[in-house]
Design a protein around this nucleic acid. Structure first.
Lengths: 235, 235
DNA sequence: GAGTGGTCTAGACCACATC
DNA sequence: ATGTGGTCTAGACCACTCT
């Protein structure tokens, strides 16, 4: 953990606890630096995290203010690909493994995972529910060489916890692509869509800090249940 | 313009021109600093922009590499809310203004735009097409006090160009929320949806560097034409 | 003019990858 | 052991807002 992430966590807590209230002006940079015993640049890095999360706004010449946010309890304020974590404490996530097999990568997959054609990959299909309600069907491809010993009971819990905590791999970034297409019978069955109704698809490629691609994943949602929030910040 | 943005632009050009090829290792930090006559921290800021854009990947102990990107010609590599800019040189964007009026903000709008109930706002509905094909229906609300002299011919061109270039306002961030709902007859007419088919909606709140909210905008797309790409990078 | 953030530098030290 | 990025500091100077 770095100092600027620590400081960001502490200030974020104060905002969430209501110690810094909505619209309020934060102490100015110099005071914060003294309070948290750090340099100006370090404080800027910390506050920039909160800017990216949409919690505060900084105005040159004016000050730093708690943003009035329309987001409920911090969805997406953290970089969090894991469904289990995203709904932690608010919904029960359950997963049913439909397919779990090892197959050789075809041309398409080899391109997506940036591996050789014929290299073995896990092919996983999971139906995942929130509080017992069908929510998403996930099709995941994962190179065997990154996670050699995957087991069904890991899939039933959190694949991300296993990868980050047990294998000590760290996620660097996700490329996300959202589109919508007409459903086939497979998604209709689980998501409860009618013929002629589309699903929403997230196509996600996850990179590790090593530069390797961890997974290529297609998540298909019922259109009426789908929601995605993000904040774009000017460099 | 800052030095680190300048450097980022120069290196981005080299990647796009193919001077730095896919998968290639960039000169290491020290050399880049010498070449671009800047400090290490400044170079890091520059390269971090390209990391956020998904063009490069940096690996401690290993180097900086051009990422093999699946994105075509840089969609979303720039922070760009403007439709006109997003498809610049690839598609012709045309807009038809359906509604253009000034109304007092109701409770809902006052909350969204963070203004007083009763304050006047522009209410604009535009049907926008790409190469003549219906693409998106945009419903925009914009406080009158930020853009006092809006005219129809501005809407027919680029509202963003007017705001950034003529009014010298700068956009700080956009909050984006993507959902999907069943279409009503209004969207069906323009987008060519059938009864019982949903549209995809982007709900967008745009903030200026002053902290003011520039606009609250709902963009509704035909589900089959919608696409959104983004890159999530760990802090 | 006073208050407040943003950028840039030089240099120290640390963490990780690869050989 | 060496190469390469990441973090942190102290301090200088700049740019913007507010009144």
């Amino acid at each position: 953990m770095t100092k600027y992430r620590d400081i960001a966590d502490q200030i974020r807590s104060k905002i969430i606890n209501g110690e810094y209230t909505v619209g309020m002006k934060l102490p100015y940079e110099y005071i914060l630096c003294v309070n948290y015993r750090c340099n100006k640049e370090t404080m800027k890095k910390a506050l920039d995290i909160l800017v990216k999360e949409g919690l505060i706004i900084r105005r040159r010449g004016a000050g730093t203010f708690v943003k009035e946010t329309t987001l409920q309890d911090g969805i997406n304020t953290q970089f969090e690909c894991s469904l289990t974590k995203r709904f932690l404490g608010r919904k029960t996530v359950s997963s049913q493994v439909i397919v779990f097999e090892v197959v050789p990568a075809d041309h398409f997959l080899a391109e997506k995972l940036r591996i050789e054609e014929g290299d073995f990959v896990y092919h996983i299909i999971r139906d995942r529910s929130l509080d017992g309600e069908p929510y998403v069907e996930e099709i995941t491809y994962l190179p065997l060489n990154i996670v050699p010993q995957l087991k069904v009971n890991i899939l039933n819990h959190s694949l991300y916890d296993y990868i980050t905590q047990d294998l000590h791999l760290r996620i660097q970034s996700c490329h996300l692509n959202i589109t919508s297409s007409l459903s086939s019978s497979m998604e209709r069955d689980f998501l409860g869509l009618s013929k002629g109704e589309p699903y929403i698809q997230e196509e996600q490629t996850t990179y590790l800090t090593t530069g390797a691609i961890l997974e290529y994943c297609l998540s298909r949602y019922h259109y009426a249940q789908y929601e995605f929030s993000t904040i774009l910040v000017n460099h």
